[in-house]
C-alpha cells in the first residue's frame, strides 16, 4: 500500500516575465516502509518534489496524498498537524533550534503534540538519543556539536513523534563522506527497526548504495525508477 501518492503534480514558479516549470506532471507511489531515494542533478526538481510531499510547498496542479489523506484539500492548521504527527524532516543544514540543547531539540515535537506524559517523553527521547549515539552530548547546544552530530540530532528529532514518513533533503550534503555513510547507515537501520518510510533526495552516487528504491528526476520529470538496488 502506498503511504505517499503523487498524481500529475506540477509546480510552476514565476520568475520575472517567465515561468519556471519545476515539476511537470509527476506521478509517484511510495510504499510504506520504503527507503526511497530521489536522485537528480541540481535544479532537477528534487527539493520541490520533497517539499510538496512534505506539505511545505503547494503544487500548481495535481494531488498529493499522505497516508490516504489528500493534502491539497487541508487548511493550514490541518497541514501543520499532519506535519507534526505523520511527517519528520531532516534538512540539509540540520536546522536545529539553536537555543535548545540536544535533549530539548529532540523533545520539541513531542511537546508540541501535547499528547504524551512526561515519563513517555523522557523514555522516547532517551531511546532516540541513544539510538543516534549522542548520550554524551544530550545537554550540548547545537553550536557545540559537529555537523554529523547535528544531523544525528535532526534524525532523532524527526523520529521522535514516530511518524509514518521521514523526508530528508540531501541529508549528507554538508557532511564528510565518513560521517555521511554513518548517517545513512543509521537512517537505514532505523528504517528497518522502526519501519518508518524514508524519502531522501541526493545527487551523490555514493549515497545510492543505501537506497532500496530510487527514482531519477530530470527537468521536473521522473525519468527512471529502480527497485531494490541492494
Amino acid at each position: 500500500m502506498s503511504v505517499i501518492s503523487v498524481k500529475r503534480v506540477e509546480r510552476d514558479y514565476p520568475l520575472g516575465k517567465t515561468t519556471v516549470h519545476a515539476l511537470r506532471g509527476v506521478d509517484l507511489e511510495i510504499p510504506e516502509g520504503s527507503f526511497f531515494s530521489i536522485i537528480g542533478p541540481s535544479g532537477s526538481g528534487k527539493t520541490t518534489l520533497l517539499n510538496i510531499i512534505g506539505c511545505i510547498d503547494n503544487p500548481t496542479a495535481g494531488t498529493v496524498s499522505i497516508d490516504g489523506e489528500e493534502t491539497t484539500k487541508l487548511n493550514d492548521k490541518q497541514i501543520t498537524d499532519l506535519r507534526l504527527h505523520k511527517l519528520g524532516f531532516i534538512f540539509q543544514n540540520f536546522n536545529l533550534i539553536p537555543v535548545l540543547n540536544v535533549w530539548e531539540n529532540v523533545e520539541f515535537p513531542l511537546l508540541l503534540m501535547k499528547t504524551h506524559r512526561k515519563k513517555e517523553i523522557k523514555a522516547r527521547v532517551e531511546k532516540l538519543i541513544a539510538a543516534v549515539g549522542l548520550e554524551q552530548h544530550a545537554h550540548h547546544k547545537p553550536a557545540e556539536l559537529s555537523g554529523g552530530q547535528r544531523q544525528r540530532v535532526a534524525i532523532a528529532r524527526a523520529l521522535v513523534t514516530n511518524p509514518k514518513i521521514i523526508l530528508a533533503d540531501e541529508p549528507t550534503a554538508n557532511l564528510d563522506s565518513e560521517t555521511s555513510h554513518s548517517i545513512l547507515k543509521l537512517m537505514r537501520d532505523l528504517n528497518e527497526t522502526e519501519k518508518t518510510t524514508f524519502v531522501f533526495s541526493t545527487h551523490d552516487p555514493d549515497v545510492l548504495k543505501y537506497a532500496k528504491s530510487i527514482v531519477q528526476i530530470k527537468d521536473g520529470k521522473l525519468v527512471h525508477a529502480e527497485e531494490e538496488v541492494i
Binding site: G54, T80, R83, F91, P98, F108, R157
Partner: peptide, 14 residues
C-alpha cells in the same frame, strides 16, 4: 525566518 520556518515545518502552529 529560517528558525521560525523550520519550527513551522516540524509542526509548530502559528
Amino acid at each position: 525566518v529560517t528558525e521560525i520556518g523550520m519550527m513551522r515545518a516540524i509542526g509548530a502552529r502559528k
